[in-house]
């Protein structure tokens, strides 16, 4: 007769709902982080409407729109990578994750050129050209660098996290039966997208 102990079931402890809930709680702290900056933005914009209007003219709407499209598309490829792993298509999931990272890189390259353009014009905190302008414009560029910079940092971190997930998928840590890590990374990535959805009209489309 077989030993009853050999039939013992190995119980893998997993709580996917808890994992996702934990990720959402972390996203709430991100909401506080960016929420505070959006408050600051609102107050300064109210008190310096004319200056914000003039300062925003230096921002290139075309590049901003293009970057919005890039980030929205990367959100799509992230969502598709989860749909693919649900359908047990590991290769396709990895392909979509890879595309997401590429789009993140594209976004950052555009950001680099945008920032470099402004810096070369002397429009950076403490720059001569900026200091000669009104206080509202100095505030605008302070917020511009802080908020798009913090957002850009999130894009870089997000790309690194997704890259780690691609490694996990290749190594079989993330499988069609256990992909909660990929879902958590996706939640982070979509939040970064949502923040940009608000940053874009507030900085690029002031009329």
């Amino acid at each position: 007769m077989s030993n009853p102990q050999e039939q013992a079931v190995i119980h893998v402890h997993r709580d996917d709902i808890g994992t996702r809930m934990g990720m959402w709680l972390f996203l709430f702290t991100e909401l506080l982080l960016f929420g505070g900056l959006f408050f600051l933005y609102s107050v300064y914009r109210f008190t310096h409407q004319q200056d914000f209007h003039i300062a925003a003219k230096e921002l290139n709407t075309l590049i901003g729109t293009f970057n919005t499209a890039i980030l929205l598309t990367s959100s799509l490829t992230m969502a598709l990578s989860i749909a693919a792993i649900q359908k047990r298509n590991i290769k396709l999931s990895m392909f979509f994750q890879f595309l997401t990272i590429l789009l993140a890189l594209g976004f950052m390259i555009n950001k680099y050129f945008e920032w470099m353009h402004h810096i070369s014009m002397g429009l950076y905190p403490g720059g001569d050209e900026l200091l000669s302008k009104g206080p509202g414009q100095i505030l605008f560029y302070g917020l511009y660098y802080t908020m798009t910079g913090l957002h850009g940092l999130h894009v870089v971190i997000g790309a690194i996290v997704i890259g780690t997930m691609t490694r996990f998928t290749a190594k079989g840590v993330i499988t069609p039966d256990n992909y909660v890590k990929l879902e958590a990374a996706g939640l982070y990535w979509h939040l970064v997208d949502i923040i940009w959805i608000f940053l874009f009209p507030l900085f690029y489309l002031i009329t």
Binding site: V9, H13, R14, N178, Y179, V180
Partner: peptide, 20 residues
């Protein structure tokens, strides 16, 4: 021996179409 995982992933599988 049998491995047993709590399958807490909902059977919910989304199609590509809605995302597009």
């Amino acid at each position: 021996m049998e491995k047993h995982a709590d399958h807490q992933h909902d059977k919910h599988v989304t199609n590509y179409g809605i995302y597009i």
